[in-house]
Design a protein around this nucleic acid. Structure first.
Length: 306
RNA sequence: GCCGAGAUAGCUCAGUGGUAGAGCGCGGCCCUGAAAAGGCCGGCGUGGGGGGUCCGAUUCCCUCUCUCGGCA
């Protein structure tokens, strides 16, 4: 019995995933499921550099611009949403093609997520209060007592993870390090193919810088200005470009400085993405050659599929 | 041509008679409900060339080259 196939096309920001994905999807009768934590939002088309209408028309894209910026979104929701779409695609006889650069989102689809309760606002608020009052060492000490395994893994300065670990412990009564062991991936049920795109670092950085310039030319400033006029969830607020422009709106620095910061933060993001993907041995790397078109790259990937 | 200032990490610069630091940039890494987030680690660089003083010079002196500013 042949296993059903799921394909991933991942890679750092601005490397050219979207265009290649469309070529590939057409060849293999697939639909695209976005694997991105920010492109789920609507009204943020320019900052998140979502595939434009033209591209969306060519091919069905899922989980693109489906959430209002006032709403929070997270990995667990993503997993639920994405897997449900995945099932629907199979029943239609289509292949799912996951495309994006969010390492954690990718990992949670392919390797699963440990069962736990969602964020508990009350507990979390209390922990953050303790953090500001007594400092991270205090919380770290607390974690060391209830979950030494996690404490060993988490750096004492990584307040966010310390708090999450404590929250889970308080909520579930079990250490997060124990719960994390139980996760069920897709590997048994499906045949998984993962391709990651990459280019020479300097070329990638040039592409990133140029893309940011393009964003400015297509109205980035106005988009973010009107975005900031409404309530923004803490997750939507994290999109690169929002905070950087906020500083400009507040008169803390010039527009050129905002541009510089957006470019720099995007470069650093790409670097972190590559670090994340590098250690994953299931990935087959596709190095985009000089002057190679999206169609040509898609063809190379396609040949590796069958 | 003359006067002055400078030449130190990829960039901008600090400092010291006992072979050098900071910011930015950059590189590596961690990652399970905020992940475009959050956290950790990383600086031997002919101290412009040559000569001198000194036990010892990047630091003092001389000279050359170059850069910048001013005067002609």
């Amino acid at each position: 019995m042949l296993k059903k196939k799921i394909i991933f096309l991942i890679g750092p920001t601005a490397v050219g995933k979207s265009a290649i994905a469309i070529h590939l999807a057409k060849k293999i009768n697939a639909e695209i499921i976005s694997c991105d934590s920010m492109q789920v939002y609507n009204s943020m088309d320019i900052v998140t550099s979502q595939p434009g209408c033209a591209q969306k028309k060519k091919l069905k894209h899922h989980l693109l611009g489906v959430i209002k910026p006032a709403k929070e979104y997270n990995v667990a929701r993503y997993r639920k949403d994405a897997l449900s779409i995945c099932g629907k695609l199979f029943s239609k006889g289509k292949l799912p093609l996951f495309v994006g650069g969010a390492g954690l989102y990718y990992s949670v689809i392919i390797d699963g997520i440990f069962p736990s309760s969602p964020e508990n606002k009350l507990i979390r608020a209390r922990l953050y209060k303790q953090l500001s009052l007594k400092g991270n060492k205090y919380l770290y000490g607390k974690l060391s007592k209830v979950d030494p395994l996690s404490a060993k893994k988490i750096h004492p300065n990584d307040a966010r993870r310390i708090i999450r670990a404590l929250e889970v412990y308080m909520e579930a009564g079990l250490p997060i390090s124990v719960l994390q062991k139980s996760r069920v991936g897709l590997g048994n049920e499906y045949e998984i193919k993962v391709f990651a795109l990459n280019t020479n670092r300097q070329v990638l950085y040039d592409k990133i810088n140029q893309r940011v310039d393009k964003m400015f030319n297509s109205g980035l400033v106005n988009e973010v200005r009107s975005l900031l006029n409404h309530k923004l969830s803490k997750t939507a607020l994290c999109a690169i470009g929002v905070r950087e422009l906020e500083g400009y709106f507040n008169g803390r620095y010039t527009l050129d400085e905002a541009r510089r910061l957006i470019q720099r933060n995007s470069r650093r993001y790409a670097k972190r993405q590559l670090t994340w993907f590098r250690k994953d041995k299931r990935i087959e790397w596709i190095n985009i050659r000089d002057k190679e078109t999206a169609g040509e790259v898609a063809k190379r990937i396609w040949k590796k599929l069958f």
